[in-house]
Amino acid sequence: MKTVKRTIGTMALAAIMVLTVSCKDGNKNEPAAPMSNEMHQESMDDKDNMAMNDNQDAKAVLQDYFKLKDALVETNNDKAKQLGATLASTLGSFDASSYSDNEQQELKDILEDAIEHAEHISESDMAHQREHFKILSKDVTDMVAITGTEMKIYEQFCPMYKNNEGGAWLSMNEEIRNPYFGDKMLKCGKVQREIN
């Protein structure tokens, strides 16, 4: 959507497209984002390697989430885009099959939502990346509530984000490094909860 030059008239843009793409599929060369539904179907069917797998999946999600968070702390738009795409694919390969039916349903909701936010982060400007990160953080926090975590995680909160609406995030370090403001207000926030 963002790549389309909105200001150009529909017809003019369409005319350009004819000259540049000879067939309809020609302009579909974006990297294939993981389709949440398909991925889920596959992973649900695959009951072979359950056991310890899921904690590993949750751990992989957390690791990619933390990398993304660090890119936002650095106010690095391009890096956050890449890491958003990485996180979307990690979320897509989460195997929830060893959880109870209720948990699976909830994880499915969480993952679907989280994937969408991660995908948006992979194609947005800084301000939008941070908006999506806020909801993504809630998704990941809710995921951890189900999966648990081996590593100790800090839930941190900055009351000033979005005109004092506030925003929470997760971190492996107790020290505050604010992903919503970056170096504009690097240390704004406090630990509001320790998980595990």
Partner: peptide, 11 residues
């Protein structure tokens, strides 16, 4: 949509 996603969509 799940409530979670409705929330995101509304946002």
């Amino acid at each position: 949509y799940s409530d979670r996603r409705k929330n995101s969509k509304l946002r």
